[in-house]
Design a protein around this nucleic acid. Structure first.
Lengths: 222, 222
DNA sequence: TCATCATAGATTTTCGAATTTGCCTATTGA
DNA sequence: TCAATAGGCAAATTCGAAAATCTATGATGA
């Protein structure tokens, strides 16, 4: 069975690793990405690295200026708010579409994704936070499931890209709102089954703006 | 004075050329992009080419599957409709924001962009269509100007990416609706000055869906 | 006849070195 | 003292060749 981190070319694997390191904050915002150092750290050649960094710069996770090399994209409260409001726009619209045309398979996906996420949230409450990475993946999978019946591949991919950037801020702030977020997730699932898109939009708005405020309150974002 | 096509590294120039060739349809949808041939055509080495193609594949203008190389992203009526509806979502929202907070500078940008576009549309009507490329750029600049006061960099960049993909379909269909589109452009400018976002949204919807229908009617999209 | 496997050719992926460019420091001249 | 310039070093960019992978063709055996 092909492990995710084993499949694809060397370049693909390096891409996933570096992308993950940026999203998780292991590569800090604004950090200079010197080719020679990365070559050591990730064990690939400079050409392959450039390929990877080019991809990431077109996703705006890395900035490439002139012929002065690459660095990790900086963060700012302004951008966080901006990303959050774009996520809200896309996700509210996608939810409305999804709620309208979702079938039983879709409901099953939503319930299943919520089950995994809720279990993780429960575990976090009792044991602290052992594995931020998989928790965030479950969060992603749940929101992805909610909109998975929207019928638009473009919308889902664009939403995914924005969501990942949003996630980077959450990881950088090392913050989560625990029970509040868990309750909102449950509400979203229930509203999905009731097909109440209007109410779901409101909950989502509270969910996202709440997440932003909480991240800013921690004050780790410059 | 640095010409656009002269600035940046060799890689950047190749990127712009290849991207343009895809958008203009000179590189056909689905076409296999063999490294050796491109090496000749664009006069750069394989490593540089891969870097360029990686960037383009993260923009979904080329697809890169496994270790079987690259090809120009295919087109489909389904994707055209999908892209159009995403463009509509983003642009309607951005217009509403922009109309609300646009200042006099913004109005001037809108009027100026419309002036250039209208002149070009007039010229096309009388002389046929000599220069599709700059006409489409003026179209882009006008729509960009309309939303330029929306206050969200993320929204504008995302809209720009979607708009370019939409444009590729228009170029492939080699179609324009001449006077109809010109009239809609004028209406949009006038509504911008009147700050009537609701009506502008309706006109934009007609503008985009009309463009899609017209492109499909020509039947050049598979 | 048909499926399976091996082999050769074509193509992609990866690498390390050569070239180019930018940056810092020291020297010169005013 | 300060501005300007040259030189040297560090880093990024670009290249072409070596290695890995895929694809098409033909041979083998049931």
């Amino acid at each position: 069975m092909a492990q995710n981190s084993d499949e694809g070319t060397i370049g693909d694997r390096a891409y996933r690793r570096i992308r993950g390191d940026i999203l998780q904050g292991r590569l800090a915002p604004g950090e200079k990405l010197k080719l020679d150092r990365l070559k050591e750290d990730y064990g690939v050649s400079v050409s392959t690295l450039r390929e990877v960094l080019s991809r990431l710069s077109s996703e705006k996770l890395v900035v490439a200026e002139g012929q002065r090399g690459f660095e990790v994209a900086p963060v700012s409260v302004e951008e966080l708010k901006d990303i959050a409001s774009l996520r809200l726009l896309l996700e509210v619209h996608a939810i409305a579409q999804s709620f309208q045309s979702g079938d039983m398979e879709w409901e099953a996906r939503v319930v299943a994704a919520h089950h995994k996420l809720a279990a993780m949230e429960e575990k976090k409450k009792s044991e602290g936070s052992p594995d931020n990475e998989t928790w965030k993946r479950y969060d992603w999978e749940f929101h992805q499931a909610l909109i998975s019946a929207c019928g638009s591949r473009e919308l889902m991919e664009t939403h995914g890209a924005v969501f990942d950037k949003y996630l980077r801020y959450q990881m950088l702030a090392l913050t989560d709102r625990g029970e509040i977020a868990a309750r909102e997730h449950r509400q979203l699932m229930e509203l999905a089954l009731k097909r109440d898109a209007a109410k779901a939009g409101e909950v989502l708005k509270a969910h996202i703006t709440g997440g932003v405020e909480h991240a800013l309150a921690v004050g780790r974002i410059v």
